[in-house]
């Protein structure tokens, strides 16, 4: 059984088929790259996987169970987490709180425990704060745990989003252009961090990224999207040579970008 199975999934916005009859699967421990020109439908696929949108047709199975019709938070609970292309942090809250909010589904002390400050409150709060700091530490953000998210530099905001997503203890992590706006050194750094968390948390990752060097380097398999359809899939080496892909990128040969 695959971790994630997507069967003939489509969504239509008015006249536009943003995602058209897409089938793919992701296995445990795998990094799958999702690439394609602007407007190809990559982010829309993430929105469909996380139940932000409901597919017009098709099915999505996580661990063999359909998650179509779930709410987003249920999908998160069942093991999927994501980051956003246009950063959506809780801007006025500290970095630490951003991550602690990510833990929401995992901490279970009750409202009574909160209001009466029962032992379970103190215990859980302490534990999850420790865990949150540990995650921040992986991305070198521990020292800025108390800083408001909106005051962080762009690169750190992107990393903080990954931290928050990791906090929900996902099996499948969806990263939407995590390296956007980063310089080559930062990108390099990020890449090794992604590799590390994949091993450390035993994750499968779907990665949307325009930075070809990152994609080619880190992904085991690639899916290329154009106009909502899959136009190619395979190993990075194969994709580099694929004529359809090269045309889709409008005579912008991949070698040049890489």
């Amino acid at each position: 059984m695959h971790l994630l199975e997507v069967n003939e999934m489509s969504i239509q916005f008015g006249g536009l088929k943003a995602v058209d009859d897409i089938t793919f699967s992701v296995d445990k421990g795998e990094i799958l790259g999702l690439i394609g020109p602007n407007g190809a439908g990559k982010t829309t696929i993430f929105n469909l996987l996380t139940s932000v949108y409901t597919p017009t047709s098709g099915d999505i199975l996580l661990n063999g169970k359909s998650i179509v019709g779930n709410t987003t938070w249920q999908t998160v609970d069942s093991g999927m987490a994501r980051t956003f292309q246009n950063i959506r942090l809780f801007k006025n809250l500290s970095a630490l709180d951003n991550v602690r909010i990510g833990f929401h589904g995992l901490e279970h002390y009750s409202l009574a425990a909160t209001l009466l400050r029962l032992p379970s409150y103190w215990r859980d709060e302490k534990a999850l704060t420790q865990k949150a700091l540990a995650i921040l530490d992986i991305f070198g953000l521990k020292d800025i745990a108390g800083v408001q998210a909106q005051n962080l530099p762009y690169g750190q905001q992107r990393k903080l989003e990954i931290c928050r997503a990791l906090a929900s203890n996902p099996q499948l992590l969806l990263l939407d252009e995590p390296a956007a706006g980063m310089n080559p050194t930062e990108t390099q750094e990020l890449m090794s961090m992604i590799r590390f968390v994949k091993e450390h948390f035993d994750l499968a990752i779907i990665l949307i990224e325009h930075d070809m060097s990152l994609v080619m380097n880190i992904c085991e398999r690639l899916i290329v999207l154009d106009y909502g359809r899959i136009i190619a899939r395979g190993l990075p080496e194969e994709i580099k040579q694929n004529q359809a892909v090269i045309t889709a990128y409008l005579g912008n040969p991949l070698e040049e970008e890489a």
């Binding site: 938070w73 998160v76 809780f90 709180d97 909010i101 929401h104 929900s168």
Partner: peptide, 26 residues
């Protein structure tokens, strides 16, 4: 007491960004 708790953080998260809050499992 409410605000300094998981429930309170969920409430603040909704104020900040409801889509991200929901994507955090809230």
């Amino acid at each position: 007491a409410l605000i300094r708790s998981r429930q309170g953080r969920a409430i603040l998260a909704i104020r900040e960004d409801d889509i991200a809050a929901e994507a955090s499992g809230i």
